[in-house]
Nucleic acid binder design. Sequence first.
DNA 1: TGACTAAGAGCGTCTTAGCCC
DNA 2: GGGCTAAGACGCTCTTAGTCA
Lengths: 92, 92
Amino acid sequence: MSKSDRSPIGRRIREARKASGFTQEKLGIEAGIDETVASARMSQYENNVHTPDFQFIKKLSALLQVPTAYFYAEEDELAELISKFKPSINLE
Amino acid sequence: MSKSDRSPIGRRIREARKASGFTQEKLGIEAGIDETVASARMSQYENNVHTPDFQFIKKLSALLQVPTAYFYAEEDELAELISKFKPSINLE
DNA sequence: TGACTAAGAGCGTCTTAGCCC
DNA sequence: GGGCTAAGACGCTCTTAGTCA
């Protein structure tokens, strides 16, 4: 599989996690994964072995303070732009 | 399932598809789905019955001329911003 | 502690085979 | 034509049970 064929999800999770100072296991537990499997699953996600579903990405988005779209941005420049986006408050 | 729990993927695919004038079936075929099942799968995606994988989203991204991150943006304002992003060409 | 992985169980997607307007 | 859906086959994810620095 060539580099450009891979999804950016794993790399973006790792970037945002490290910027927040979490370990893989701690972040997984905070996001609701059972503590006995949090380390394994987070590692699989960051290494693109498996892909998390969108509901899980929403939890990371809340914990790591970046929009969900951030995790799916292929271009670094766009990821940077998205990470700075702050939504206007929506009381729904 | 409350509105805020749903993923934006289906809605974003539909938005971008309609803006480009494709039918569900035609877009699915262009993206590489077998013509006998393109209509069913595209409908399932747009109605959030099933979730396409990232490789498929990359094909839609190329066909519909929006970055992959667009399909995962929850906030309309951010989706709009992302859709206008054009990566700077780096000639090296 | 922190990160990683093989392999089977379990669950979500894809295909089939229709439907409606 | 254009869009939609139930249900089973199938393939990917999650859990288990470890390893390694």
